[in-house]
Amino acid sequence: MLRYILRRIAVTIPILLGISLLIFVSARQISSPEGQLTLNPRIPPEAKAAYIEALGLDRPWYEQYLTWLGNFVTGDFGVSLVKNGQEVWPIVQSALANTLLLAVVSIAISLLLGVILGTVAAVRRNSIFDIVATFGAFVAFSVPVFLSGLLLQLIFSVQLGWLPTAGIYSPGQQGFDLVDRVEHLVLPGTALALQLIAVYSRFMRASMLEVLEADYIRTARSKGLSELRVISQHGVRTALIPVVTRAAIDIGLIVGGLIVTERVFQYPGMGLLFLDSLFAGDYPILLAVTMIVVLSVFIMNLVADLLYAVLDPRIRFA
């Protein structure tokens, strides 16, 4: 097991390097902090040149990259290029915490609902319930977040006035307030969960259908178990394995993949930070975000694999 983990880590390092290089090159190519200054007539050429030199942006790109890499491997994420020298890590850390909260809560709720919906749909295959659930999942999955997010805002914030449209706290709120925080989590969480529930319920349905066909389900029935016990103990528990591992991988992906949701709901997480940094050409933050996303995808994939082994005794890592 330990060897397996070590081997996975070894494979990940070149991936990390490759992605960081790719992000660096493309970030430097499509955006730059100095670009913001080009059209400001109050900035004399000398001041601009001094600024660019101070940030090291005039050096060859590989030198800039290697400097960044050198700092990164020693655990130094560097300083932001546009936030006037603020440390990158605290900025990323707070965004990461916000996104993780959103991701974990949404995934937990989606998993619960998705598993229930998928199981019932599989057990009552081709029933009205199954057809409605299938259609609903199709719609929920097809509607992009920027549309469902806006609709949620229009319905629950503008029309009904129940929930806030954006942010993580009410304006003026200082310090932690659980109720306020949760209220601000509902709409972005729902927008995200709509898609996740659709995915998980389909996953669960397919997985459950496969399991229900399995011989050991017949064995369980032949033992004289109640149908509820057959489905819950033998069916769901087994069918859950691919769904749970998928959810674990999702946590890894969502850490960086909520750009649209976070922008629509002005949710100060990793996606919004990524977008803002991309626009601003702030590559130290961009790279930090990306590295954390890659790492989290890697870690959660590993967790998913290990989870698989825990949940399914047949799997052993050599």
Binding site: D215, R221, T238
Partner: peptide, 29 residues
């Protein structure tokens, strides 16, 4: 009545729940 009329299936690989121990498989009934 199922208790009194049991079945042994063809495929000993597929018919046993892979996630249960032998004790649980035998003991569940």
């Amino acid at each position: 009545l199922r208790r009194r009329a049991q079945i042994v299936f063809q495929d000993p690989y597929a018919s046993l729940n892979p996630r249960m121990t032998v004790r649980d498989i035998i003991g569940e009934g």
